[in-house]
Computed example of a mutant assay.
Amino acid sequence: MGRPRGFDETEVVRSTVELFASQTYDGTSIDDLVAHLGVHRNSLYKTFGSKRGLYLAALQWSLAHDVAPLIDRVAEAASPMQGLREALASPIAGVGLDLFLLATVERAPVDTEVADMIGETFSALDRAVVSSAWANGASEADALAMGFTAVILGLRMRARSGATSAAVLQAGDALAQRLDQH
């Protein structure tokens, strides 16, 4: 029988969200993870398989616990714009949205599993915005335009105000440029 795990897996995953949100995936080494988490390298590999495995666990946790409640707020709001404003101003909007934005521009283009997770999250946001907009008489196109504009601008404003890292500001700018091209 093996030794019992000497760390709380959920706490490690939650703490990893913060590190990847502040340093990006490519900017975070295994040594950074070991130092930040206080968990031995072998334990991380045994539990998560790789840095990518830990990243996927952190992203999945963040999307479920940080981003999904914000999307629910949008769906339940009196209007999509009000819901997006409330969601972006929420205290829980911090690190989770940072990781979501970084994953969108850094990992999704090169990792299909991340792309699928991000795509599902954007689809949930689309449904929430459209549902709220239709309930208030807006067209689907107007609702989607409002939603994406508000999300991108809100995240970029948070980054510029110092509420998030420089990496998030760069990611927001990169995503805005991609959206402008389409």
Rank of each mutant, 00 (worst) to 15 (best):
T112K: 07
A143W: 04
F148K: 10
V130N: 01
S132Q: 01
L125I: 12
R158E: 08
E113V: 15
L155S: 09
G147L: 06
L99C: 04
V151E: 13
A93T: 00
E106P: 12
I152R: 08
V95R: 02
A108R: 06
V130H: 01
A141F: 08
S123M: 13
S123H: 07
G137S: 04
T112L: 10
V110I: 15
A93H: 01
L125P: 05
R127V: 11
D98E: 13
M146Q: 11
S132I: 04
T104P: 05
E106Q: 13
G147M: 03
W134A: 04
R107C: 13
I118E: 06
A133G: 15
A108N: 08
A143N: 04
D98P: 05
G147T: 04
L153Q: 15
D142L: 06
A93C: 05
T121Q: 06
V95D: 02
M117W: 04
A108W: 09
L125M: 14
V130Y: 03
P109H: 07
A138D: 10
R107I: 14
L101W: 03
F122K: 00
A145Q: 12
F148P: 01
I118T: 08
S132K: 00
P91H: 03
R107F: 13
A128W: 04
A135Y: 03
A128G: 03
A143I: 05
E120H: 07
E106C: 07
I118V: 15
V129I: 14
A115E: 13
A150S: 15
A108K: 08
G96R: 01
F148L: 14
G147P: 03
I92Y: 01
A133P: 01
L155H: 09
A150W: 06
T112A: 13
V110Y: 10
A108F: 11
N136C: 12
F100P: 02
A93Q: 01
F100V: 04
L101Y: 00
G137F: 03
E113M: 14
I152Y: 06
A108T: 10
S139N: 03
N136I: 05
T112H: 06
M146H: 10
L125F: 14
P109T: 10
G119E: 11
V110R: 08
L155A: 10
S139L: 09
D142M: 06
A141N: 02
D126W: 12
